[in-house]
Structure formats: structure tokens, C-alpha cells
Design a binder for these strands. Structure first.
Lengths: 337, 337
DNA sequence: TTGTACGCGTTATCAA
DNA sequence: TTGATAACGCGTACAA
């Protein structure tokens, strides 16, 4: 009982051994005889001793904790990334503090201050959509902290990033539609202030160019890519006439498209083929099942966590940013007969 | 630059003011004159001072951190709960440490030790499927920590729980099938060592009884409720003959059922109606769309977080456990003509 | 192998 | 209103 207030000094007194020896024993130092080590460990568990990491961390200036800043936890993609992060962190003996920016720069700044004051050993961050300048990260870096960007890569003072090759994925997706006979492909683009969506658009454009398909600016419809946006964009696309393919920057909007096309009695894929991006669980369930890009979310989290921890533990080795490849998952929505 | 190593002593020296006064100023204590307060704050930001919470926490024995133990982050339900937890915690000035047990008791024990040693102010936990005894929580409680159980309620030493009325929800779901003409309803039950699944089964049983439908033990098929389990269970159900309804303890298995029934050319809902549990995003997309139980996951997280923090901040007030109500979302899979 | 002595950065207590 | 001092619990040079 009352096991929480036991300190090394209590063990020290109970055994008439100096607290420094107790400390060494608990840290399994070789500079303590096996015999006293055993006595100490026995007493520790008898008293229900639990180390106070606060004191230990203060003393050693090391917390075995990493901070994760995520735009929004409830998005499937991010929660899978975090799941991966947590897994690797756990294996390496690190705890994970999670904070959501909700795409707000102000929150992101507060979060950085909190993580700093808690002296986390490193930070994994996917910056908010509002974040342009990265000045608020500087104090933490100057302090000697390590930062790795995930999902949304940034170039910043020797920090590394881990992300997905959006351009290439997008190129592949568009190419796939072309090879399945599409000539007039509408692109549902995301907010162009986000690099990731810019890259997806560029991949689309370059694929068209490679196959000598003439570019028509009206075929690019920008939105925030919600399901409702997908429906609205589809309506606009149908008004353009002669559309035979839709490539959406995410699955959510693509699902909207499929729903609307079905309602209009348009055959997918023969009249209009559809390709999405993300490989949401839904994409395999909807009918017709949705061709899409699979992102290695879980693995991305594992790798990010791995990169960060190896940077924390071996500062000398400068690592390179990583760009993960992506798979095109071909399903019914794009295979014309 | 080098802004990380600034302590209150540096400010103290630079201004020739004692560090205790600096500390008071930084904590906005009323016992410092406005004038010196201003000077101190100015100097602090000039030097790029960042408080060291480790030291502060050690001294005050308070961390403004709560630990969350979750069986599996990548499940939609849990990530939404955590999203809610994080939201309320952030509002109240608490950070959140997240740990996954992956349904392993061994991991859960380690996690408890870590959270304890980090002196988190409170813990929100959904115990693993392997967890029967709660002895590993005792040291933390004795220490004076607060624990709130979420999703999977437990009775334990004055701790409170927040959960969902699984029994009632299950009763409702089964009743709905009966009222739609089902006479022989198969129940996909989850692992019966988990209370939650026990309650769901009981709700099913009691609904049958209320409507004088004779009980047939072979109609209850237990599994871990993966999609593959759902398919396997459906095969077994079909062998039983004369089935006209399936009530599954989660959507995942229900989706498996729908897929298999469609493959067999069985009409849903006219031949066999299907009801799930969880209101996964998929449930509204699959065809036919799935009737299911909606759980207020995000709100549950907010409330859990709220309960815990108010317990932390006002130990005297003993709160009651909460049971949240649930909605039956009626869709195409259960409406017979 | 063990003990001595001190410091990590902050805050609480007491005195001025 | 401010200053001096000790204490939170642990880890580590250094000495023995």
C-alpha cells in the first residue's frame, strides 16, 4: 500500500545501503555486486517501488518520449500512421505524446511550446494547412531537438522528411486511365496551397502530355474533396460533355462521384471510368469497387518513428529524406471492356 | 540561438533579481510588482526562455498529462474516441500520452508501469481482451492516481466507467429484426470474456424472449468478428437452414455476411435481413446499406476526458459511472417488403 | 565494490 | 514586494 511514494531513499534506509548504490542497482550497473543487487531489487519490489521518471529525466536530460503533431486524428490515414509510429516507438522504449493541430497554426505553435517544455527527445510533425513559415520550430531545434516531417514534406534546416511520391502516383493513376481508353479525363484537384495536391495535379498534367492528350483547363475542378464536393464536381464535369474518365485526388470525392454517376444511370467504367487516391476501406466495398492508390500509412509511421529515433540516438549520422513508393490498386471502376 | 538552455537563473542573473522572483513572475503570481514582472517577461522572451516542465513537475508533483491506454489505435471507433479525449484535454491544458495494448495483458502491464513512472495525473483505459484481474492498476491507484474506464466498463475500487448501453442497443437491434418479420435470427457473438460482447448477446436473448421466439443455441455463432469470420459464420448459418435474419456484434463481420450472401445469390433483406453494430463508414456505402447501431465515439472520448480531469482536479467529489445511449440506424439491409 | 557530495531547474517556505 | 534556502528524486563524478 501507499506504494507510490517509495523512493530510492526508502530502499536505501531499509537496507542500510547508500542511495547511490540503490540507484546503480536499479539501473543494472555492473558496478554493484550481484548479491546486493539482488537484495535491492527484492526490497524494491517488496516495497512496490516505482521509479520517478520526472526526476530521472531531469537529471539525465533525456525523456524517452517523442512528440507527434498530427493535423487530425480521426482521419483514417493519420490514425494508421500513428499506429505505426507508436509500434516502433514502443519497441525502442519510447513513449508517444500525441497532439492535434486541427490544421490551425495557432494550435501548432502552442503544441510546439508544450512539447519543448516537456523536453521530448524528438518530434514527428505533419504541419497544418495554415503553416507556411516554420519559425516556431526553430527554438526546439536550437535546443538540440530532432524533427522529422511526415506525410507533408518540408525543407528546413537539415531536418528530414518522409513522404509519399504523390507525383509519381498521380502519373500512374492518370496513365492507367489513358491506357484504358480514356481521352477526356477530369481531375478533381485538392487545395493548391498544399504541396501534396499540387504534386498530384502535376502528375496528372504530365501524364496527359506524355500521351499527347491536349490539355483543357476546364477539366480541372478544385475543391476540398469532401463527398459532397465530389458530387458537385461530378455534376459540373457532366455539363462539360464527352467525359470518359475521372481521376480524383482522394477516395472520398471519388465515392461521391460514383454515387452520383450511378444515380444518373451512367455506366462505370464503360461510360466513365473513375480512379481515386488513398485506398480507404470503403473503396473496396463500394460498387463498382474503386481503383485507387494505396499509401503505406502504417509503414510510413513505422519508418518515420525509426528515422527519428535513430537521429536522436546517433546525431552524427545525417539521414536522407525518404520518399515512399505507392501502389495502384486496380479494381472494377476503371476497367473498360 | 541556443535558446534551449536558458533557465530562470539566466534571467535572474541578467536582471539581478532573485530566481524565486523570476519563477513567481513567470507563473503570473500576484506577489510580484507589475513592473518587475514586465521586465522579467521581456527578458525571458528576449533570451528565448522555455520553461522546463520536468523540473516544475518534479517540484509540484503534477504533470498536466493524462495517459490513454487503447487496445488498438487503427480501429475507427478508438481513433474517434481518442480524438474526443484529446480535444477536451487540450482545452483544459492537459497533454495526452497514448499507448496501445494490442489486446495484450503483458503490454498493458508495461504501459501501466511507464505511465506511473511518468507520473501522469490520470489514466483513461479500455482494458485488453486478455485482462481479467486488475491488480496491475492497483499501485497507480494507491499512489493517488485517478483511473476512468472507457468503452469496456469495469468495476474497480471506486473507479468510474463510461460506456455504451450495449444490452439495450442489442435488444433494440434484435427487436427491429423481429418487427420486420424475422423468426430465426442468427447472432454473431464476440469473445464472451469481454463484458461488452456478453451484454450484446444478452440483449439478443432477451429480445427473443420478449417476443416468445424459442431459443436455439445453435443460432449463436461466436468468433472474433473479423470480415473473414463473418464469411465463415455466414456459411455455418446457411447450413442451419431457414435463417431469415443475422444480427452481428460488429459491422466488420456483418459486411462479411453481406458479401457472402450476395455471392450466394441470396436476397438481402427479403431472404435474410442483416443488422450490424458500430456504424462504420463502410456500412452506409455497401449495397444494400447496412442497418446498424451508432455509437457516440467522439463524444464518449470527450466525456471520458472530462470525467477524468474533474476527478483529478476535485478528488472529493465522487462521480458516477455513465452509460451512453445509442441509436439504431435503419438502412436497407433490414427492411423486408 | 561502495559511499560522499553535489547538481539537474523549479517552486515552496520562511524571513526580511 | 523580494530574497535566501531547501527540497522534489535521481544519477554521477570522485574518492575511499
Amino acid at each position: 500500500m501507499n506504494s507510490g511514494k517509495i523512493t530510492i531513499h526508502d530502499i536505501s534506509k531499509a537496507l542500510n545501503i547508500d542511495s547511490s548504490t540503490v540507484s546503480r542497482a536499479l539501473n543494472d550497473s555492473p558496478r554493484v555486486s550481484e548479491k546486493t543487487k539482488e537484495r535491492i531489487l527484492a526490497k524494491a519490489s517488496e516495497l512496490g517501488y516505482q521509479r520517478n521518471s520526472l526526476a530521472s529525466n531531469l537529471r539525465t536530460n533525456k525523456t524517452y518520449t517523442i512528440g507527434v503533431v498530427v493535423p487530425r486524428l480521426s482521419r483514417n490515414f493519420f490514425s494508421n500512421v500513428i499506429s505505426g509510429i507508436e509500434e516502433t516507438a514502443y519497441e525502442k522504449g519510447y513513449s508517444v505524446i500525441i497532439c492535434q493541430s486541427l490544421e490551425s497554426l495557432e494550435r501548432e505553435k502552442k503544441i510546439m511550446a508544450t512539447l519543448f517544455s516537456n523536453r521530448v527527445d524528438g518530434i514527428l510533425i505533419s504541419t497544418s494547412m495554415q503553416t507556411e513559415s516554420l519559425d516556431h520550430l526553430r527554438p526546439y531545434l536550437n535546443h538540440g531537438g530532432s524533427i522529422v516531417f511526415y506525410d507533408r514534406p518540408r525543407y528546413f534546416e537539415g531536418c528530414t522528411s518522409i513522404s509519399i511520391n504523390d507525383y509519381k502516383a498521380s502519373f500512374k493513376a492518370t496513365e492507367h486511365l489513358i491506357q484504358n481508353g480514356c481521352k477526356r479525363i477530369v481531375h478533381f484537384a485538392g487545395p493548391q496551397l498544399v504541396d501534396l495536391y499540387k504534386n498530384r495535379k502535376q502528375g496528372y498534367l504530365d501524364a496527359l502530355q506524355k500521351y499527347n492528350i491536349q490539355f483543357d483547363a476546364s477539366l480541372i475542378i478544385e475543391s476540398k474533396l469532401s463527398e459532397a464536393d465530389g458530387i458537385a464536381s461530378t455534376k459540373r464535369a457532366l455539363e462539360l460533355g464527352n467525359i470518359d474518365g475521372i481521376y480524383s485526388s482522394n477516395d472520398t470525392a471519388a465515392i461521391g462521384a460514383i454515387k452520383h454517376l450511378k444515380m444518373e444511370g451512367i455506366n462505370i467504367p464503360n461510360d466513365i471510368a473513375v480512379v481515386g487516391f488513398n485506398n480507404d476501406p470503403i473503396s473496396s466495398v463500394i460498387e463498382p469497387s474503386l481503383t485507387t492508390i494505396n499509401q503505406p500509412d502504417f509503414d510510413m509511421g513505422k519508418m518515420a518513428s525509426h528515422m527519428l529515433i535513430s537521429q536522436i540516438e546517433d546525431k552524427t549520422k545525417v539521414k536522407d529524406s525518404q520518399v515512399l513508393d505507392i501502389d495502384l490498386i486496380i479494381r472494377a471502376s476503371s476497367l473498360k471492356f
